[in-house]
Design a protein around this nucleic acid. Structure first.
Lengths: 209, 209, 209, 209
DNA sequence: CGGTAATCGAGACGGTACGTCATGTCTTACA
DNA sequence: TGTAAGACATGACGTACCGTCTCGATTACCG
């Protein structure tokens, strides 16, 4: 028997059906008609739910959007495994993400969340905790393994390196000035690993066979 | 008789005073109270101008915001000169920009513009033309000079390299997970130039004294 | 079990307080500052009510004006009783109405309603139903009693006779070229009853000397 | 030769073409799309004329509407001649008018003018002078002739009698509750002449049985 | 024939009101 | 207590007129 930390819940229990309908409606609107189409009225209407029920559980529509996005992503993204090399690990982390992100107009959704997060510290914290940090934690672990393998020096600034990876990807996602192709992902990884400064007198290619 | 390129402007001429008042009011609201505070009513009120006058010249408030931002930036940003090395050129380009951008909450403003630009192609084109491309043109020229100097191989993918520079910077600007310090800028540049992969048997440091 | 003619009213009930405040504000503005002063913004402001609340219940400001006017009049106008003669009945019907109408600038209000009613069939129907027909029904009943009494022939065209009564009254009300005095009302009634064509060799009591 | 009270008119003379175009456009809009369609912008646009030119000569759009209406009517209405009897004179006066008025939606135009005239004394005076008094003058003259002929007693209140004629006609024109037919006009005239009160032992020819 | 002066077109301007829409709160009845 | 229904205050939206204004261009006269 497990300890029941919750006191007995009185009254009508929360409707799981309503919760799902709301998140689904929000995600659908978010991706198909853009963040500006996510009005509480529209979500309520489409979810067949009362507006009060939404406000009961989500304080703002951005919170709802974040939750909807998280629900979509959490279900989709797998945990990458150790491929044996830094390059391989990074590609294994980034490729699925870029493929997910390319398929639908996530750029404007994330931009909308960022707009609000830059103003609302509570939303910001939640955004960081749920969408940003998990990815960075994965990357951090990958760099840690690379250090352990001796692929990179111990004094490499990991946080900066992570920004060197995700920065260019988000840049294209949000600015849309060029496609977020698999090729681009590989180039970003290789540039970070090897640098661009004149033919390095390295032994062998970036990933020694 | 000289060719008259302009046809005679008929009717009352546009009020330069009103134009400035509107842009100033928009910029002020944008930076002090955030993009959501830029309502046409508020701008009109603060600029002492009729709403119709704003709509006469700016179709949407995002267009206005973009114009206001551009006006601020165009006046502020200097043209960087040739420092003699790729590293020096990049730092000379990026440091003034990061200092400008750090000083005020530009992150949310740009995020708001991006949100709209991802949906409205007309705004997107204007955003690219006025805020994105000029910076990228500068960076492209810098990399071209570096190639000419022999600092970097001719087959380096310049566009990707530009994303490797601006990506991390915009990443911190927009996500705000870590500060956009001068130190960070230097680290980004150095990582791009040298890579992070194990001690390279280069001749000398990145910037030979 | 009793028949429940009303289905259970769901949701927040309509605010009776708001309804009254709106009608009062509208009537006040209508009569004190004229129909052109009845803007939705002004009514909302004066009633301490949201504009959306007004639009929720009244589709146009003319509908609101009609409702406000009806509310004022319905409360004021008594049902006339049988005085025993056609002349007495007509005077008993018309005198209270002219006194009511004289007291305040109803002319412009009715003119404004008519302007709109001549264009909008829906408003017209409502205007006829609530402000015109009740009066004509009263007059029709009076003429019917007079026919029964033998005061007037059975072939008198009642509808025309009603227009002969209300026409001159409305004419002075709307055109304002001469006062709508009690004297005028009596003269209109007498002219209708006796005609103006040379001294009639009547025995009758229409104007007992 | 008459004395020229005007000093020589300096400057560019008023454009007769513009004047006509404005009045035509106003009349057209007034009758085809209703008084609410007569906006200064629309008239200016349709007349191919600058707004300033309209304001130069007409202070308000109601003044313009009145002028437009008067221009139409003045051209249309003939002066009735003496038919030899009061009844004939009245019918000769009223029938052309009702036919003119029936043909187009004048009701709403007049209602709109009245609405404004009840508030604006200047417009009211102009309305009375140009549209009301000429008609009443004609009617007054007709009644005067009837008195001279001995058709009606000398003590008949002429002004009231005129209201008994025009009142019912305007009533149907403005309220639209019944058609303004030739039959109705004749009935109004006959009711005024003979009264409705029981078969009068007249000798007169008003309604020869 | 050139100067003076009013009118004309075009159209920008500061306002006010329009009617709609979204936000977030509330009140009620039902589950 | 949670939920559906829906009324409510607030306030921005984008549009349409209002009446005023500032231009340059036009068209008379008058010296």
């Amino acid at each position: 028997m497990t300890a029941q930390s919750e006191s007995a819940p009185r009254g009508r229990p929360r409707s799981e059906k309503a919760r799902k309908a709301i998140l689904d409606a929000a995600a659908e609107l978010l991706l198909e008609r853009g963040p500006s189409a996510v009005s509480m009225d529209t979500v309520a209407d489409r979810a067949g739910v009362s507006k009060a029920t939404i406000y009961r559980w989500w304080p703002t529509k951005e919170t709802l959007a974040l939750d909807a996005l998280y629900t979509e992503w959490a279900a989709t993204v797998p945990e990458p495994r150790d491929t044996g090399s830094l390059r391989g690990d990074l590609l294994a982390l980034l490729r699925p993400w870029t493929r997910l992100v390319r398929g639908r107009p996530y750029g404007r959704v994330i931009a909308a969340l960022l707009t609000e997060a830059r103003t609302d510290p509570v939303l910001d914290a939640e955004y960081q905790r749920r969408l940003v940090q998990p990815r960075r934690d994965q990357a951090r672990e990958i760099f840690r393994r690379a250090t352990a393998r001796g692929e990179i020096p111990a004094d490499v600034k990991i946080e900066t390196a992570i920004d060197m990876i995700y920065g260019p990807l988000y840049h294209r996602l949000l600015h849309g000035h060029a496609p977020l192709s698999d090729r681009f992902v590989a180039d970003v990884v290789d540039m970070l690993l090897n640098g661009i400064q004149r033919p390095c007198v390295n032994v062998g290619p970036a990933n020694p066979a």
